[in-house]
Every structure is written in structure tokens, then in C-alpha cells.
Design a protein around this nucleic acid. Structure first.
Lengths: 363, 363
DNA sequence: TTGTAAGCGTTATCAC
DNA sequence: GTGATAACGCTTACAA
């Protein structure tokens, strides 16, 4: 029985007995080799799909594998390869839905592969963040790492991965890196489109609730907003732009500010759904009817967007699909991919989803 | 260079060159042993906190470890221990917030340990579910597994873990297993309390929106509801009980049904927040004021609860804390735990959170 | 209390 | 194409 790390035990051999697998031990590569009448290395070649093998040998080995129900031991492979068959998901928990949807996408993509997913939150506030990640990557030695926004915007983090020989993909609202290291959405473009719809409907007094300072996604969305306004020959009065941080409470504050104005906006674009929900609550509280008196648009198409009333027009951010794509870019060689991932676009289209929170202005 | 699994390459040695770590290779246990002037095994003993070591030796080794910046290679340890230093989180994605909050709790708990978290969704609908999980556990060989509801209610799954020598903890709305294999909340009790509040306020016509058939959490919440009614000498007319599945759309349907009744309920308890949001939307649509004309209570205290208007009174489910506790129960020996986890309760208290969606009935 | 030798299950090297 | 033999970095069994 092993010493147990961190176990502070009295005896070196007192670990609780472990139930033995019913069928005895699992078959190893040696069993397969023996049964197939070949060497370990040949079996290894089959496992790893080396090309230097005759079809006949391969088939013999494959049959032996099947007969024995042999599954290569990932721990041993990890030791020999000096690399674990894992993908690490590094995130700073921007919001649960985003992380989990992305996670789900990644898991979809690697479902039939030998890979597994390791999740690692990082604290972007901490000054030891880089060291923490370094230790983590050096210990776990994953094949690759996925960086979710906002930490995906950290160039040092990307450099660290590069440095440690860990592949990486950065997820963002705009091209953050070269195509083989980046999956992004087209936030600016689609926000411009959504706000353009407001203009088409006749809105002239359009408010904006910003995202957190320093976030690329916030900057992209803001610039898309301005783009739409200037396309329409409009400008944004300073008092129509409210600060925000992607949280509901910021939406409340923004709503209070914007809707108390002498000439309040007839429409408000919020940089995410949570803040849009906050603005909507304020409207409800003030007896301002949505969408009759006020149109509201959000961003993310989070569950909140459909849970609030009236249902929120918003931008659907294809985060799950981005997870799939990120995996395909990161580890194409593990995913039995036919088409070259290089041929797939790495900019995923967000789309404007019209629901009940938008209408033309009253007059 | 290794063959690459799944790589379908032309050459056995053509793998893309990998950036070599700046500082050469990482130090191994041999380097430490040499520097400290002891054997490998002694270093191993220090790493694994064996007690059969003199303080002097230990200190010498620890110093060497520090000087070299040695970090034990988990892959090698995993091979030798026949066990990976991982915790697996098995879930069937009941909802993102729950999974991620729990995940966060687990990660909090294992933050300073050598453990890492592996996330694995399972498809409880599939008839290969057990086999899939078996393969997963046999391959990854985690120290332990955490089962989230509803799959935590599957006894075969628990038996499988037992069988494979993988520790496990089941998370549920009620005691699903003995204390060392279970973390639970007290749904029944706190639902009874919440509904009791409605009764105290004077509500007599109280509706109920059920959770999905077959879910233990749904059954617990329902029985808590009935408990409160019978405590008050009330009974639930059949038409006041609407089916549900924890989804928003079910809330919409339930709301339509309950609020179209000739004598509609003056209060509705919903088995989760999403359905409560659906009921609330229907109320808004029908011009029924909340809470004036209708009180609504949900369950979970999800983000939705505060994003909707008026803010939802609900039951806070301490899912993150349950994650922490689950980890402490699962791997106390890895967590430098002072107090015995056995002394900590494994039933975590849910609490009723009063917000704006509840008031006394009109008359 | 410490050390030696033999694994753990796989891949790398390099002859054949 | 294939296989013997030596890694990979650590733990275990057993000896000292």
C-alpha cells in the first residue's frame, strides 16, 4: 500500500484495503502483445496509429485488443510522452453560463477522443496568477490550454503557454492572436447591426450601458455601438453613456441614471443581458413600459434574456460552438478531423435575436 | 519524438518541434536525492509525509526540494500509485449555475492541495451510461468522484465507483447514502418553512408547480409543500398542482393553467426559480400584479431570482458550500484538514430568502 | 530509520 | 516493418 500524500498517517502500510476489480487486473500492452504474437512496440504502434505497420499485423493486434478489452493506461502514456492527455480550461469565471456552455462545447468536441477536460479557475486579480498557472501547467502537463475571456486577453499568459510547450487557444470578442491560437466572435459587427435596427425603427435618443473598463469585449461592443450611431449621423451625448461592469446592479444604476434624465433615451443598448435586466427592472419600477416607452437590447442571450419579462432582444453569443471550434483548433490531431481545421473560420458569428423588448419609439 | 495518438502521420519522427523549456529539464527526485545526500526513497517519504523519518533528514530533503524548485511529477506518481491525483465531477448538467457553483466550491476546497478537477458530463438517458462512466473511471483512475443530482440518485453508479475502488460522494436533496458518501440539503424542511410563511400571511389558495418526475429533489420539495399545507389544515386541490420539469417553459404552462382557473391561487410555490420566472411572466402578461395579486416563491436562488422583476423570494440552495463539503468528505487526507470531516455535518442548510415577490393576499 | 532493487505500463532508440 | 532494451519519474517490497 502506498504512502498517502498529505495523509499524516501512523503506519506506512495501513491504508484502507481497496476492493479489487472483479476481473482481476486490467490487461496491459504485454498481454496484447503476447496474444497477438508481436512485440510491445508493435502494439504501441497500432495504438498510436503509426504508419509503419502492415495491415495484417495491425489487424491481428486490433483483434487482440478487442478480445482483451484492452485500454491503454493513460498514466503510463503520460509518463512516457511527458504529456498528459488532458485539455485545461483556464477561466476567471466571467459568468457561469458562459463557462459552462463553453465547457460543454469542448466536451462535445473531445467526446470520442482520449482526451479529458481539466478545469482551472484563475484569479486575474492576484499578482501570483502567472506563477500559479505556470505551476499548474508544469504539473499537469496538458496537451493544451483554453483561455476564456477576460484572461484570454492577457498576452503574458499566452506567452507562458508557448514557453512551456503547451498549445493554447484564446477565446475573445475579437481577433486576439493569429488564427491558430484564437477563436473569436464578431461583437463589434453584430452590435452595430442590432443598434442599426433601433435606428431603423426611428429611435434617435439611444442610450448605452458600457461593459467593464479594460475588457476587450466591452471595447468591441462599444465601438460597434458608435459605429451604428455614426452610420446614422447620430452622436452619443455624454449623459447617454453609463458605466457598467456586466453585473445586474450596474444595470440598475445605469437605468436609474438614464431614465431620470430630462430627455431620457427611448432605447438603451446594454453591453450584456444582466445589465439589461437591471435596466428593465428600473423601468418596471418607474412605470415605464417596455417596449412601448423604452426599447432594451442586451448581449449574450443568457438564460436571463428569456426569463425576464418582456423577453429580451439580445445578441446570441455562440459560446458553445466556440468551445467546439476551440477544441478543433487546439487538438485536431486527436479528434479524427477530416476537414483541416485551418480551413474552418475561426471567427464565429454572433446573431441578433429579436424578442419582445424592442419596438419603435412612441412618436 | 513520440508517435502521436490519432495523428495519422506520415513519419514516426516528424512531430512538430516543441519549444524546450528555457531552464532545461525539470529536476527529478534523483536530483533532490543527490543534493540532499539521501536515497530516492527517502525523498519519496518526505514527499508523502511518511512518519518514519528523522526531522533532520526531512529538513535536509525539504531544503533540497526548495533549492531545486522540485515538483513531483504527478504522471509518474499516478503510474506508481495506480491512481491519478484527480477528482472527477460527474454531472448531467441540470443547470449551469448549479454545476459551476458546485465546481467552484470543490476547487476552493482543493486549491492548496495536489489535486485537480476533471469534469465529465454524463448522459443519464443513454443506456451505455454506466459503461461510459466505467471506462472513464478506469482510464482516468481518479482518487474520487462527485456525483451531482440527478445522477447522484443512481445507486448503480455509486456501486460502480465502489467496485472500481474510486471513492465517491453523492450530492442530493436528501440523505441518499451513508454520511461518508453523501452531502445533502434539507429541501423538504425549508420548503415547508417557506410555504408556512405564505400560510402565515393569510394565503389559503396556494398553488404548486412540481419538479420533474423521478427527481428526488422534486419529491422532497413536494413533500415539504404538502407538509406545510397539512400543518395548516389545508389540502391541495388537484387543479392547484401543475406538472413541471424545472424549465422556464414549464413555468409558462403552469402559470397559464393555474392563473386561468375560476378561483386562481393567491400564491404559487414553484419547485425552482426558472419555473417561477415563467409563472411571473404569465402574471405580467395577464396584468396580474406581483406580489399584490399573486405571491410567488421559487427555489435555488439562481441569478434569475434577482434578475426578474419583482425580485423573487426563493430558497437559497448552498450548492457552493456543498462543493466544499463534498471535497472535504471525499479527500480529507489530501486537504490538511484539522477537524475531522466526520464531525462536520453533511446536511447543509438551505435558507428561505425573502424578496419582493411575496405579500399577503388581497382579502 | 534508511537504502537497494524491482516494478508501474507505456514509448524511444536503434539495430535487424 | 519489427523487436529487444533502455528509458520515463516515482513507489513498493524487502533488506539492512
Amino acid at each position: 500500500m502506498p504512502d498517502q500524500p498529505g495523509m499524516h498517517r501512523k503506519s506506512e502500510t495501513s491504508m484502507a484495503p481497496r476492493t479489487r476489480e472483479k476481473s482481476g487486473k486490467q490487461p496491459t500492452i504485454n498481454d496484447v502483445a503476447a496474444l497477438a504474437g508481436v512485440s510491445k512496440k508493435t502494439v504501441s504502434r497500432v495504438i498510436n496509429r503509426s504508419e509503419f505497420i502492415t495491415d495484417k499485423t495491425r489487424q491481428a493486434v486490433e483483434q487482440a485488443i478487442k478480445m482483451l478489452g484492452f485500454v491503454p493506461n493513460p498514466q503510463a502514456r503520460a509518463l512516457a510522452f511527458r504529456r498528459n492527455f488532458l485539455i485545461a480550461l483556464l477561466h476567471d469565471n466571467p459568468n457561469a453560463q458562459t463557462v459552462l456552455n463553453f465547457q460543454q462545447g469542448v466536451l462535445d468536441a473531445i467526446k470520442d477522443s482520449d482526451l479529458a477536460l481539466l478545469v482551472r479557475p484563475v484569479d486575474r486579480g492576484s499578482d501570483r496568477m502567472l506563477d500559479d498557472v505556470r505551476v499548474f501547467l508544469e504539473k499537469q502537463r496538458p496537451i493544451g490550454a483554453m483561455l476564456l475571456p477576460p484572461i484570454s486577453e492577457n498576452d503574458e499568459l499566452a506567452a507562458l503557454c508557448e514557453d512551456l510547450g503547451v498549445r493554447y487557444v484564446r477565446v475573445g470578442s475579437a481577433q486576439l492572436d493569429d488564427a491558430k491560437h484564437c477563436v473569436s466572435s464578431n461583437d463589434r459587427e453584430v452590435v452595430a447591426e442590432a443598434v442599426g435596427k433601433l435606428v431603423e425603427l426611428g429611435h434617435r435618443r439611444i442610450g448605452f450601458v458600457r461593459g467593464p473598463v479594460g475588457f476587450r469585449s466591452a471595447a468591441e461592443r462599444e465601438s460597434g455601438f458608435h459605429e451604428a450611431l455614426s452610420n446614422a449621423g447620430l452622436t452619443l451625448p455624454a449623459e447617454y453613456s453609463a458605466p457598467g461592469n456586466y453585473r445586474y446592479t450596474a444595470g440598475i444604476e445605469a437605468g436609474e441614471a438614464l431614465l431620470s434624465l430630462a430627455a431620457p433615451p427611448t432605447a438603451i443598448f446594454c453591453s450584456n443581458d444582466e445589465m439589461a435586466a437591471g435596466v428593465m427592472s428600473v423601468a418596471h419600477g418607474k412605470g415605464i413600459a417596455v417596449p412601448t416607452d423604452l426599447s432594451i437590447i442586451g448581449f449574450d442571450d443568457s438564460p436571463t434574456a428569456t426569463h425576464i419579462w418582456p423577453a429580451l432582444s439580445t445578441v446570441r453569443w455562440p459560446i458553445r460552438e466556440m468551445g467546439v471550434r476551440a477544441a478543433r483548433i487546439l487538438v485536431p490531431d486527436f479528434l479524427d478531423i477530416i476537414s483541416r481545421p485551418a480551413d474552418e473560420p475561426n471567427v464565429m458569428a454572433s446573431t441578433f435575436v429579436e424578442r419582445q423588448s424592442v419596438a419603435g419609439p412612441k412618436r
